[in-house]
Nucleic acid binder design. Structure first.
Lengths: 330, 330
DNA sequence: CAACGCTTTGGAACCGGTTCCGATGCTTTG
DNA sequence: CAAAGCATCGGAACCGGTTCCAAAGCGTTG
């Protein structure tokens, strides 16, 4: 069943170094080439990549540590990474942590044990143990989605995007706004988007906002939205949501109550998920190029592996997409 | 940087076999245990898993070959697999083929080279080369989503689901129906769902359907839907779609034309994607338990690896979900 | 006190490849 | 025709672990 290079050599009547040379394009005579070729076809020999990597002391694998796979952002990003890596002869090894922070640390050591060449970490929070682990494994790591000065980072321009959403909502005449965000532990989504929004708010006299917190899951968002919508004596004219998923939850909660969007209340999202385009009304949101982000992360990590220099911080652009979910109430 | 077991042994003043014994829980005296422990902590030694697997001649990895990652079904399934495998000490290696059939074959050989223990193939089409590859690599393989008599298979009950959708639509009084399907090369989605639907149709006098073909992507579905909707002199009262994505495309195409759902035309889907619940109107569809399917596939492949017996064919249940996208026109 | 048994340890072989180096045989050149 | 050069090949060492076996050290027992 499991033929080795020695078997091939023995059957072909040559030394295993010759077989190895044949496999790796060394100088082999036409006669032996044919012999070996024939034996390999005959036996269905497949080289053992462990033995190869053992000698080479490295693999052509790049690891991706993701908090979850079943999210639009994650799957898009991973797909982008995978394609870029494959085009360059690398293989992607995905580790799903199921949003378990300590599992990220384990994953780091795990990947080191497997002599992975580089790692892209889809970060949500960055702790001390992350940094010591990265230090200890001695493998290039890139943060995607969060930044830290000691580690190469790629982030989306959440602050400016939040600012632009805020400006837009205000320009549409909204003054009583609810901001439905997420935990501040997630710096990018929970803090930076909100701060951008707050900056816009500060620049506009007479505008005020209440801040609420939700989870990432749509079901939690529906609940959080209910709290806002059921507050009869102080209902905002617009709800700004920190993610598209949350916005979807708000829209559902509104629809269940017969509240129309955008006539009765306006909604915005963040992310640019595909569905935001097909639903009715279309969701005004900010679109991030997740696939492009994944490709870039892949390119950068490959550079780091080859010991080329890479910018410590890369900020990715976004695209503001205006659809129908915001009413002009001037 | 890269300390080996020999380094540890030298520093600790013991033989490397002793260190290995320490690491794998053999009998080591308290004194040497402490010495080795200390040195390992000091150096941050991480064993090279290649060398381990080389000797062990296997890994604790299971491979998943998926046509694409950025689909609801795939990411749910993969997540389920991953969790089940991790709980049992296996690691998942995902290979994304970007819907390139020949890459599935490459992936098969690739995984063999890496001495993966078992493989779950998210099948769309099964060709001769698939079967010879599976034969040749000598590793347990499970088909998920398609069946073949020679390979362990897990499928969803597409035929019955299609039948039930058909019965439902007919019971609601629809007689002029458009079926928007996909290529017949995909036996599960393209053939079995359709056949189930056709069976229901055959049992109902006076009902007829036109069959159209679309791709899996929503944008293609929008186009295909347009052909149906713009055919003024023969517009069906209902469109049955082979996937939720296609149904979403139909809904968008309808909305762009001011055609109301379900008042002007009814729509059904297949799959049970999360979004079908939050959109308005809610999409009547059939829900598959993708995560559960993934877990089951994982369990079966682990059994095969341990040379336990497994049913050749497992048929997974579905759940019919009635929402608001179908009108009663009796 | 010799024989025995148990725990602990070191040495060596092995897993399946790659690579370096030296030997061989053939062709080319002066 | 001898010397030099080149392509081809075999042997051995090596990558970093695991495992088998024999030896050493120790206490127990008759």
């Amino acid at each position: 069943m499991n033929t080795t290079i020695s078997d091939i050599a023995k059957i072909a009547g040559v030394a295993k170094s010759t077989v190895s040379r044949y496999l790796n394009g060394g100088s082999v005579s036409e006669a032996t080439r044919r012999k070996i070729e024939h034996v390999i076809k005959e036996t269905g020999y497949i080289p053992n990549s462990f033995a190869q990597s053992l000698k080479a002391k490295k693999t052509s694998m790049i690891g991706a540590i993701v908090p979850r796979l079943d999210s639009f952002a994650a799957s898009q990003t991973v797909t982008g990474m995978d394609e870029e890596l494959r085009e360059n002869g690398y293989q992607l090894l995905i580790i799903n942590t199921s949003q378990n922070l300590s599992r990220e640390i384990e994953a780091l050591y795990d990947l080191a044990r497997q002599k992975i060449s580089g790692i892209v970490l889809f970060a949500t929070q960055i702790t001390e143990s992350h940094l010591t682990a990265i230090e200890e494994i001695g493998i290039p790591v890139i943060f995607l989605g969060q930044q830290h000065e000691d580690v190469h980072s790629i982030i989306y321009d959440d602050y400016t995007a939040g600012y632009e959403i805020g400006r837009y909502i205000l320009a549409k005449g909204h003054r009583d706004i609810a901001y439905l965000g997420v935990t501040e532990k997630d710096v990018a989504v929970g803090v930076r988007r909100k701060h951008g929004f707050q900056q816009a708010l500060k620049e506009q006299a007479g505008a005020s906002a209440d801040f609420y917190e939700s989870g990432f899951r749509m079901s939690v968002a529906v609940e959080a939205a209910s709290r806002i919508l059921d507050n009869r004596d102080r209902r905002p004219t617009a709800i700004v949501c920190a993610t598209d998923n949350i916005a979807l939850g708000v829209m559902k909660a509104a629809h269940m109550r017969g509240i129309r969007i955008p006539e009765d209340i306006s909604v915005t999202g963040f992310g640019g998920y595909d569905v935001t385009e097909v639903i009715h009304p279309g969701l005004t949101t900010v679109k991030y190029g997740y696939a492009a982000g994944g490709r870039l992360a892949a390119r950068q990590v490959m550079k780091l592996v080859q010991e080329e220099s890479v910018d410590t911080l890369t900020v990715l652009d976004y695209e503001f997409i205006e659809r129908e979910s915001v009413d002009n109430i001037e």
